[in-house]
Design a protein around this nucleic acid. Structure first.
Lengths: 233, 233
DNA sequence: CATGTTATTATGTATGAACATAAAAGCATG
DNA sequence: CATGCTTTTATGTTCATACATAATAACATG
C-alpha cells in the first residue's frame, strides 16, 4: 500500500510493467481494477486508464468491461514493420540511393492482376518495373500495376526520375490496403536485375491498396538476397 | 462551420480521416489546432486530442508541440504482424496442428550463437529443434537455443509434447526482443524436415528475446515454401 | 432446474479546467 | 549580425466528475 507521488501515466505504466515482469502479476491473472489502482498510486482513474489502455493496445493486457483486466496469457508479439518509401529506407541506412526504370508500358494485364485489382480484363493498366539501388548495388526490384482507370494521372508520368512508389504516395490517396510477406525464388529476369543467381531466395513484399472501393495499385517488391526487415518487440 | 452533434472521439477521427482522404487536407498540410477543431465539432479539446493522437500513433499525422499537427507527407505504412504461438496460428486457419520434436541436446553452442546470447563460449545451452505440422504437412521448422544459465528450468522439460515456443511463452518472461524477417535457401537438413527441394526459398523469422539484461532465447523459424504472413494496413 | 429479467460492476468515454512542456518566434543585447 | 533571453503558442497531461455500455452475477419465475 505504498502511496506514490508524482504520478504520470508513464510512471503508472512502468510500475504495472514491473509487476508483470517480476511475475507479481502472472500471465492470466486478473489485476486490481482501475479504481483500486488509482487509489494505490494516488492518482486519478483517468491516469490509470491511459496507462492500461496503452498496454492493452500493445497486447500485454486483455481488458473487458465488467470482467476486468488481466495479464495476457500468451502475449501475441506484435511486430510492427515500417514500410516506408524505398528511397528513404536506403538513405536512412546511410547509403546513396539510385533508381533505374526498367520498363513502363500501358497494356492489358494478365488475368490474375486484373482480377486482383477488380477491373475488366480488357482494361489497359499501367505496368511499371524499376530497380532501386543502394550504393550502386541492386537493392530491390519493384514490379507494379497501376489501375489507370481510377488513377488516369499516372499515365502522364514517365517515372524516369521518380519511382512509382514515391509518386503514388505523394499524389494518390488510399483508404486501406493489404500487405503480405513471403519468400520467392528469383526468376531469370529477377536474377538479371538483382544481379544474383537464378532461384536465389528473395524476400517478397506484396501490397494491394484501395481508395474506398476502387483499387489503386498492386505491387511486388523483391529484395536482394540477404535482405532483412527488422524491428523491436 | 457546421456545428456537429453527438461527438465521440471516433466520430471526430472519422471526419478527420474523411478530410484527409478527400484531400481537403493534403499530405504536408497543417491542420487547424485542437482548440479550433473542438469549437468546430462542438466538443471538448480532450476529445479532439484523443482522436488526433491515435491517428498520429498510426503514422497518418505528425504532431509537434507549438508547431501544430500536419498530415504526414509520406505516411509510413505500419504493417503489424502478429507473432503468435505457432499452434494457435495453425488452429486459427482451421487446420489440425501437429508437433514433432526433432532434436534436443545440451551442448556448447556455435560461437555466433553464444555471442548473440551474450554468454560464455563454454556455457552449455539447450538446443531444441522441432517441426510444426498443419494437417500432417510440414508447416514450420523451429531451431532454438535457450540460455540455460538464465532459464535452468528449461533443462527439466523434454519438449516431447509441448513445443519450446509455447513453453517459454507460458513460463519465462521477457522484457524486450528483436525480430527480423528474411528469405533463406533451404539447407539439405531443412529440406528433409520440410519435405521440399533443397535451396527452396523459405521465409525465415529470427527472434531474440531478453529479460532485462539476460538473454532468454534465440530462435529461427523457417516456414514451408509458399508461406505468407499477411496483414492489413 | 432451466430460462428470462434485473441489478451490479468494471471499463469506456466526455467534459472543463488547470497546469506542464517543447519549440517557434520575437526581442534585446553585445 | 550573431547570440542568448523572453514571450507566445500548440500539444501533452492531470484531475474530478459524470454518464455510457458491455458483461457478469444475482434473482425471480415458470
Amino acid at each position: 500500500m505504498n502511496v506514490q507521488t508524482a504520478q504520470t501515466w508513464q510512471s503508472v505504466q512502468k510500475e504495472v510493467l514491473r509487476r508483470i515482469h517480476a511475475r507479481d502479476w502472472k500471465p492470466g491473472d486478473l489485476i486490481p481494477n482501475e479504481t483500486e489502482l488509482a487509489k494505490e498510486f494516488g492518482c486519478a482513474r483517468t491516469t490509470v486508464n491511459r496507462a492500461l489502455r496503452s498496454l492493452a493496445e500493445g497486447g500485454l493486457l486483455e481488458r473487458r468491461r465488467k470482467a476486468g483486466t488481466r495479464v495476457a496469457a500468451q502475449p501475441v508479439a506484435k511486430a510492427t514493420l515500417n514500410i516506408a518509401v524505398i528511397r528513404h529506407e536506403v538513405e536512412d541506412r546511410g547509403a546513396r540511393y539510385g533508381y533505374q526504370l526498367a520498363r513502363r508500358e500501358v497494356r492489358i494485364a494478365p488475368t490474375h492482376i486484373s482480377a486482383t485489382l477488380g477491373v475488366c480484363v480488357q482494361d489497359r493498366l499501367l505496368h511499371v518495373m524499376a530497380l532501386h539501388l543502394s550504393n550502386d548495388a541492386p537493392y530491390a526490384l519493384e514490379d507494379r500495376w497501376i489501375n489507370a482507370v481510377h488513377v488516369p494521372d499516372a499515365l502522364k508520368q514517365d517515372f524516369q526520375s521518380i519511382s512509382a512508389n514515391e509518386w503514388l504516395l505523394q499524389n494518390v490517396p488510399y483508404t486501406r490496403g493489404e500487405i503480405s510477406f513471403s519468400a520467392k525464388p528469383a526468376s531469370a529476369e529477377n536474377a538479371n536485375y538483382l544481379n544474383c543467381p537464378e532461384n536465389s531466395a528473395l524476400l517478397a513484399v506484396d501490397r494491394l491498396t484501395w481508395d474506398h472501393d476502387q483499387s489503386v495499385t498492386v505491387v511486388q517488391v523483391l529484395f536482394a538476397p540477404g535482405h532483412q526487415m527488422r524491428t523491436r518487440i
